[in-house]
Design a protein around this nucleic acid. Structure first.
Length: 555
RNA sequence: GCGCCCGUAGCUCAGUAGGAUAGAGCGAUCGCCUCCUAAGCGGUAGGCCGCAGGUUCGAUUCCUGCCGGGCGCACCA
């Protein structure tokens, strides 16, 4: 970040000084091959055309000016080279890189944070599974992504609220009530006929038995009342289970939003009014329709059916309208990928409510293939197979599960192999990263034991010994953490963080194998290397925090 | 039939608002502990970035068409 800002400012001012146009198309980025330097400025051909010269020539002229302006032992820029069709390769001095340690020490837990979100009021709604059964692995992936994303966005300066939408008003709830009642009858020895579509998980029978224990009078109640009781009891029970599972998974929702309160609060009518005012709704065949076709959807959708009841879509529109009425400017929904057909419709609705395209984002979470030793684990609920989130977490632990979920693009399929994730090896990057952090702290501990004193803040001069290629590579990568955090926030991509951490941990392990720290020989080396270690450890910890994964100090 | 996502090393996957010689881990293979945690490190082998066109100075990246895999297309939730 420092390097990029520094170089950008310098190049722009130089270009202005030389009366050259600085094209927006010019790319300033770390080259893929570090041998090319720390930063590459790619002057596109257009730039040269505007300037009336060849790109290489333009680059040479800039390089000359930079060399002239940045000479001497204290210079930030160590070298400038022109390569390829117009690449300006900048290499910063060791001194410049070493200062990254000072910034890390100064910012501590805030290192890598930024204000790019500008306090934007943002809502992340995730998991939102129907309270009809326990969370499964797929929900776990959505939970990890949503929670991590909230952390990442906050870190980047967004004002984030997290929310869980409880679908407690629909037909599914009645079905749940019926399922519980049937099982309760069964448990009481009454004759029952089990319909096709009811919830048949073992957890329903457990709930039914518990309810019966609390309310022995259940079967004496009028049918409707008994159904109500079963529904409410079942839902409360399952919802509590979901909350427990999420808490155990280190996932927190600040708001639990009930669909019922939405209907009762008149949100549906308000949303309908808004659509009508904007000219998007009409009556046909006794139903209320929403003209989504002109908004990117492939057909118009029904809001209120001819029998007077609302469609699911209608309450979803009302819900989203309510989100914007609550003051959120940026609404992020995290859905299972099987709902992808629903996205254009929702997007159309948000547009019809008068919101901009960028006010709404949907993140689709692809399915998780649960495997064990390369063999797919079936969807059955038989004992011994792990399909619920709670089972998987019990099996592999929170850290390993979260890191695994967050190490892939969320819209690609994920093979989650229990055997692999349970392994404490490099098959399983979470330990690799955690081990790097633990290593740092093991050394810091040992240093303290041996009476080596590392001040809380070192001065720049003490870092001078850090000039080997591995030192500089570590410093460079640590310095990029803010870039990575910002990009993860803007692209809604938590996996950038896990990839970055794996890379940083790799550099640290390599560095560790090559450089002795406490046995470095002279005191200056010991201090400099300890300071570097502590700084890298800080970056690892900050990154892991964004993933919601622990950073252990010993392993 | 229409639409969305995915095809990158033997395997699992990164990368791409167009840029230099396409990366990582695993697996394979050869090395490294009298020495701060070997849960580690270093080396080697491994690629028509699904195929074919197009745009461009330049395409794994953007566009079109195919092929292959997954998913969705209700006055269901």
């Amino acid at each position: 970040m420092r390097a990029l800002v520094h170089a950008d400012r310098m190049l722009r001012s130089l270009a202005a000084e030389m009366n050259l146009p600085w094209p927006e198309k010019a790319v300033l980025e770390p080259p893929k091959d570090p041998a090319h330097g720390d930063l590459a400025a790619n002057l596109a051909l257009v730039a040269a055309k505007d300037a009336g010269c060849k790109p290489r020539e333009l680059a040479e002229r800039l390089a000359g000016r930079i060399r002239a302006a940045h000479a001497g032992p204290d210079a930030d820029i160590a070298s400038v080279e022109v390569a390829g069709p117009g690449f300006l390769n900048l290499r910063f001095s060791p001194l410049f890189h070493q200062r990254a340690v000072l910034e890390i020490e100064a910012k501590g837990a805030r290192y890598g944070s930024s204000g790019v979100g500008n306090g934007k009021k943002t809502q992340v709604e995730y998991v939102s599974a129907n309270p009809t059964g326990p969370l499964h692995v797929g929900h776990g992936r959505g939970a990890a992504v949503g929670d991590s994303l909230a952390r990442i966005l906050r870190f980047a300066g967004y004002d984030v609220r997290t929310e869980y939408y409880i679908n407690d008003a629909g037909r599914q709830m009645n079905l749940l009530g019926l399922s519980v009642l049937l099982r309760a009858k069964e448990a009481a020895g009454l004759p029952v006929e089990l319909p096709e579509d009811f919830y048949r998980g073992a957890y329903i029978s457990d709930i039914a038995r518990n309810l019966l224990a609390e309310r022995p009078d259940l079967h004496a109640l009028p049918e409707a009342e008994a159904l109500d009781l079963c529904r409410e009891y079942g839902m409360a029970n399952i919802l509590q289970g979901i909350k427990d599972d999420l808490a155990a998974f280190r996932v927190e929702h600040e708001v639990w939003f009930s669909e019922r309160t939405l209907v009762r609060g008149g949100a549906v009518e308000r949303a309908f009014g808004r659509l009508k005012a904007n000219g998007f709704s009409y009556e046909k065949d006794g139903a209320l329709w929403f003209a989504t076709t002109g908004l990117g959807d492939d057909k118009d959708r029904v809001l209120r059916k001819s029998d007077g009841s609302l469609t699911y879509f209608a309450s979803d529109i009302a819900y989203h309208n309510d989100k914007y009425e609550r003051g959120f400017n940026y609404v992020i929904d995290i859905w299972g990928a099987d709902h992808h057909g629903y996205v254009p419709r929702m997007r159309a609705a948000v547009g019809a409510l008068g919101r901009e395209r960028e006010d709404f984002e949907v993140l689709l979470i692809q399915l998780v293939n649960l495997m064990s030793g390369g063999v797919p684990v079936g969807m059955s609920t038989r004992a011994g197979t792990f399909e619920t989130l709670a089972d998987v977490v019990a099996e592999v632990g929170v850290d390993a599960a979260r890191f695994m979920f967050l190490s892939r693009k969320c819209d690609s399929h994920l093979d989650f192999d229990l055997e692999l994730v349970r392994q404490r090896s490099m098959d399983n990057p979470v330990y690799y990263v955690q081990y790097a952090h633990a290593r740092v702290h093991a050394l810091l501990r040992r240093a303290a034991q041996e009476g080596v004193n590392l001040p809380d803040a070192v001065d720049a001069g003490a870092l001078a010994p850090l000039d080997g290629p591995e030192d500089l590579a570590l410093l460079r990568l640590a310095d990029r953490f803010e870039d990575v955090a910002v990009s993860a926030a803007q692209k809604l991509a938590p996996h950038h963080i896990s990839a970055y951490l794996t890379e940083l941990a790799g550099l640290l392990h390599g560095w560790y194998a090559k450089y002795p720290v406490l046995k470095a020989g002279d005191a200056a080396n010991v201090t400099a290397r300890l300071a570097l270690l502590r700084a890298v450890g800080r970056v690892l910890a900050n990154g892991l925090e964004l993933l919601g994964v622990n950073a252990p100090e010993s392993m």
